[in-house]
Nucleic acid binder design. Sequence first.
DNA 1: TTGAAAGCGCTACCAT
DNA 2: ATGGTAGCGCTTTCAA
Lengths: 338, 338
Amino acid sequence: MAATLKDVAKLADVHSSTVSRVLRGNQDLRIPEETRRKIFAAAKVLNYYPDQTARSLRMKKSYSIGLILPDITNPFFARIARSIEICSYDTGYTMIVCNTDEDQAKEDHIMNSLFSRGIDGLIIAPVQNSIEHIRELKDQKFPFVLVDRFFDEMETNAVVSNNEDSAFDAVEYLVQNGHQRVAMIQGRKELYTIKKRVIGYKRAVEHFLLDNSPELIAGDGFCMEDGYEAAKQILNLDQKPTAILISGNLVTVGAIQAIIDMGLVIPDDISIVAYADNVFSPYLIKPLTTVSHPLTEIGTRAFELLKEHMESERPLPYSKIVVQSCFEERKSVKNLLA
Amino acid sequence: MAATLKDVAKLADVHSSTVSRVLRGNQDLRIPEETRRKIFAAAKVLNYYPDQTARSLRMKKSYSIGLILPDITNPFFARIARSIEICSYDTGYTMIVCNTDEDQAKEDHIMNSLFSRGIDGLIIAPVQNSIEHIRELKDQKFPFVLVDRFFDEMETNAVVSNNEDSAFDAVEYLVQNGHQRVAMIQGRKELYTIKKRVIGYKRAVEHFLLDNSPELIAGDGFCMEDGYEAAKQILNLDQKPTAILISGNLVTVGAIQAIIDMGLVIPDDISIVAYADNVFSPYLIKPLTTVSHPLTEIGTRAFELLKEHMESERPLPYSKIVVQSCFEERKSVKNLLA
DNA sequence: TTGAAAGCGCTACCAT
DNA sequence: ATGGTAGCGCTTTCAA
């Protein structure tokens, strides 16, 4: 059995409240060196570690945070989770990760379970089929930060990427390389980030007067098969595009596979720009021009923002932090003007 | 503020202990339907959720488990973590994941922190630079399960793969395809699983009377660069091998890159069998003959074993579960006999 | 069938 | 400078 404060107190021949004070290191109270020494010695002998459960109950603070993500198996979220974990570890918080699989009911259930466990704060990439439980967080003034996703209709803390701009920029880059017909394989349509990318894409198409046929936007879902099918569909159009903007790691692999299967060559026959994570790129043999997200920064800033809100006496104003995507030029885009 | 038992009791006009009994659903006590109804109604109205912290303190059981892994960012461990999380979620446990980065000091610290949080059990892929803290778990009769790694000198619960056999089998497969000089790029040398694979490889080399030059074993570490360097080194030997057995996802990518850079073609010039996870394979464009691990099964069985031990009244005997690797034949091995 | 009371281990307040 | 004590919210005996 683990030693308790009382055990230490008995061994050091003082009262348990004194032990608590000494071990918590309350500076302002001057405690004789002799007493401190006795107590530390006793704690050492008994290998005393404070019972966090009791502490949490008493202090109404658990030094733990919740992290709710779609799926930790996705390298994108794994990397964000990891950087949050590092921050938590460094500052004495314990992080509890849960996965929703994009299931709203599961998200609701997880949130309740985390609350009954007394988390001090929450970081969440919400499913976004419902907004009520998030609104309740606001109402309760509970500290939380959204990551990767945002509710445009509601002010909250959030750390998100500039998806709309990065999609616009990607198309602009293709235009500068002489492309006039640019397709998009979008990934899961109803997702916040995807919607933003599509908006950026459309804005660019309009702005640069590109071919705006609706068939140029295809795909739904994040599996390899989704990418494979969408690419086939697009490349079988009468008016084939010269370039494709692709969203999603596995979608990209699927699309490349389709291109190979159709006997086409990147970038000679078709140019590619992909939203693909840096964690993912090493796994690919083909060099790829990519738009990627600063995942470590997203995690770090989300944690810092949360910490600020958790440790503030009074409610703080919300911050929406927009991090910049990173564009990396590699040999998957042909310059048609050259 | 969250509602407490007392709040519910007041609203339902009964004592809090009665509420506790009813809400815990103690069957054996017959409580009038009327009372139950009142209590459930009150709980509903107040949106009551039990305070797990208080419950844990009282019951000396937290319904939480710890999971200590090298790095959740590694798809191998991410997949194991995910399957354990699913099991936990389904059975009402909360899982706390921590990463060691293969740092023994960090592992020790994490274990203490998890204990002071009152976890009921632990699943761990240990760094293995030290064995003392694991021995202590045994001494304390604390429920724990090792995954992926094992201490040959100590009996414990564990779920591991048959690395030695799978390496032997992989070499045998190459022999059956006519290969007589088989190299090995080993990954991080001092790792338990790697040592086992090397033993299996060496046993096969001896058994099938293959070229046993020590230069045929190369590499140390799990980065792409490690794989790249090791492959170059091996392929620059005077007596080049005809096949390589590679350990590690990124190591494999690095090795393939080196092969491409040297102007060689797989499998025409060099055959490859890789220890690569199924989660990883989709990311590769080149088809690869692989040895992979049943990650979901590893996680599931580890959790089930842990649960058995956590919920048993008396200490149970330890189980070492060996799961079978999966060999998948694809077009990266040339048949020299054909 | 239900209420009263003790106590899990800790911290913080009030004494001295 | 230190001890005593109350109480966080819950479960669980013991009484009635």
